[in-house]
Design a protein around this nucleic acid. Sequence first.
RNA 1: GGCCCGAUGGUCAAGAGGUUAAGACAUCGCCCUUUCACGGCGGUAUCCCGGGUUCAAUUCCCGGUCGGGUCACCA
Length: 497
Amino acid sequence: MDFFEEMEQRIPKGTVRTRFAPSPTGYMHIGNLRTALYTYLIAKHLGGTFILRIEDTDQERFVEGATDIIYKTMKTCRLTHDEGPDVGGPVGPYIQTERRALYGKYAELLIEKGGAYRCFCKPGEGEISETVDGKTIKKHQCQCSALSQTAIAQKRSAGETCVIRQKIPAGGVTSFTDAIYGEITVPNAELDDNVLIKTDGLPTYNFANVIDDHLMGITHVVRGSEYLSSTPKYNLLYSAFGWEIPNYVHCSSVMTIDPASGATRKMSKRHGDPSFEDLIALGYLPEAVLNYVALCGWSPKGEREIYSLPELVEHFDVSGISKSPAVFDLKKLTWMNAEYIKAMSPEAFFAVAAPYLSLVITNPALDLKAIAALCQNRCEVLTDLAERIDFLQAMPDYDNALYVHKKMKTTLENSLSALQAAVPVLDAMTAWDNDSLYAALMQLAADLGVKNGIVLWPIRVAVSGKASTPGGATELCALLGKTESIRRIKLAIEKLQ
RNA sequence: GGCCCGAUGGUCAAGAGGUUAAGACAUCGCCCUUUCACGGCGGUAUCCCGGGUUCAAUUCCCGGUCGGGUCACCA
């Protein structure tokens, strides 16, 4: 059995296998995340295997530590891969630079089979404008493919560097079927002899993806639609090797609306659009981001929108993926994030909220758990927690105008008298919890013969200094404790006098 | 510019040759409420344009327009 037969033997057969194959750029694009998700879902929905492969053949773009970010992101998203650089598998290695020798061997094989040739042209050399059917096409054309074995040997021993190029058939057409876009046909004359192996000996994406996808037994190639127009070239490669062509699922890009021009463009880190890790830092939950991203360009059958990852696995279907690019809507993500927050158990919410709360609450007398409970159903993103509760830690400056509220019928005068009347009532209280406070203050309002709001509104302002707070007067007082609440109310009385 | 792909409210989108053209976000109004929020109820708003095919087209076909992708020793 020769080397190539051995490689064929290793390929698992009979199961669905997909792969997510990112380049280590240092962060996770939203578009990439969505592709990773869809790739995972397609495999898992069909009971298949999900593989992680690192495409690091571009040495110039190498970023230190970038692969760790990929592992970390996949982990926080729970997109667990069954095979990959860190967990191994039957068709490794799973990092392209570690597969280097492989590509060379297959490139040699392809030359033998007539699908490729060595090209000694310098970069930019051999570019011609060819006219086909009256249309001008820019492509590479040189005499290198006609070089004899001895001529090639001479050049190489003379130290001339070369690349290996794909040899595109002169005529005919190449067709393929994409699961989303349907059948696509391209005349071969419009395809270029692209570089397969670079002078540094490493393959280009054009070559590596075909070799790896075949050798790893990938049955469904899921990737961005930017590869749609080069797919015919890859199929020519598969055919030249005599390999089976995989199923293709090309996904459209995730767009954003440029705030300056109003034009829609692809989301990109370069233009300041958030990456996955940016969204997490902004206070979004990974589950919510994943759920939103799933719906950005895919639509489930029913009307439900909230899906956990296992539920997505169950319901996902490529037929629901849309052909046109979708605009990423941060507002809808924010809504969905709030839905996720509200659905959490108090304990789970406290666990994620605590770090944000303790950023501003350092007073040990304040109960973080109680604060979290109060905030949970009015929190959209974790990062907006701080400004909602900072008044608990320290009373902010505020304008007495807050006491005046039309609907509550409060004025500076009746606020002052309400606060003055409240002090002895609060002072006399033995129990200090929300229910007792509410009962006592309602009684006070009744005794004074005024509406609840006349009493409760000024107290809320007096203890918070804010127009909007995570709870009403009694909840805030309960949180602050007796001494602090009364102290704040007395300060407010001074301020109003 | 060539080639490929696409087009339903502001956004994500369902949809079928004949429908009151779903739903969600956003937006607006009302209700609830010790504020805001949450919650509840309701409103505004969409089939890109022109030709065909058909009794009937937003749906099928052809053009146009607009949008996206691609034309690297990047992936």
